[in-house]
Design a protein around this nucleic acid. Structure first.
Lengths: 151, 151
DNA sequence: AAGTTATAAGACTCTTAAGTCTTAAAATAG
DNA sequence: CTATTTTAAGACTTAAGAGTCTTATAACTT
């Protein structure tokens, strides 16, 4: 799998937060219910995003988490890097250590081009762009439900 | 990781076979030694490729495995499909079941384009193309050694 | 025929990702 | 102050991929 499950859940949660444009704190319990993700597991993932500064959290009643910046300014890449790190964009396709321009494997060059395609997509796509599309066309954010059910 | 370890080992072994252009059978033990892959593990992987008809095997002394066709006619895609299957080219980026044009997630479209890039690369690259490059520039096929050491 | 070299198959172990559960600590509402 | 709602942290369990080991079987060499 290209992205780990943690990362995928992190992306869905980030989209959920961006979609709720009232910018109050959103309880993790609410998100785990709506997105059908284990509460404790989601909590762990969101803690990573909080640690990276993408989210901020607040304890107590009416607490929860929220984006620190506008969803317009947050790319998918930011979420992926916070959770999965950059292995996807640096790792050799043949698994050879230290593969790079200095000591390439035969697939290195072609793989690097392909990877750039992935990188560009992740970097150029923002949360808001996707939530807008999601709301306009009622696309899916959970196994069954679309954006409109959710809000 | 985009490709499983099994798949990566399968690719390296396939390249090894394509690089040994004398078309006799190559003992798995020789490959596992040269490529620094566990013999038993590599055996399993090659059995999958044999099962898919990409390799043929021969038992007894002077036995081993060999490509059933010329390396020019075998794409990386063929190896990847035989070992990892098509999940990479069909799976939803948000992990939603049955994501597709009918019931897309908000990333579906962009992700499909990116995936096409991967697909094209894997389909258009042949084993021979890579072994030729590997031999010409003595590129790496193992952690330390290049193609020239190997043959 | 006997011994050797090889693949075939599957049980088994190890490691890591995925997921759960428990306890602690913060902050607010009443 | 106290009860409640929430995040925080980390131990723990489960599941899956990665890797090892053992036994069986095929086929060649002498």
């Amino acid at each position: 799998m290209l992205l780990s499950k943690s990362c995928v859940y992190g992306l869905r949660a980030s989209l959920y937060l961006a979609a709720r444009d009232e910018n109050g704190y959103v309880p993790i319990r609410e998100m785990s219910d709506k997105l059908e993700i284990s509460f404790h597991f989601l909590t762990k993932i969101l803690q990573q995003l909080t640690g990276e500064g993408m989210l901020e959290s607040y304890k107590g009643p009416n607490g929860g988490v929220r984006l620190t910046r506008s969803g317009e300014d947050i790319s998918l890449m930011e979420v992926v890097m916070a959770i999965d790190g950059d292995y996807m964009l640096t790792e050799c396709a043949l698994g050879l250590p230290g593969c790079g321009v200095m000591k390439p494997c035969p697939i290195h060059e072609k793989w690097a081009e392909t990877r750039d395609g992935i990188r560009d997509m992740l970097e150029s796509t923002t949360l808001t762009e996707l939530t807008k599309k999601g709301k306009d066309f009622d696309l899916r954010i959970t196994a069954e439900g679309g954006f409109r059910d959710l809000m």
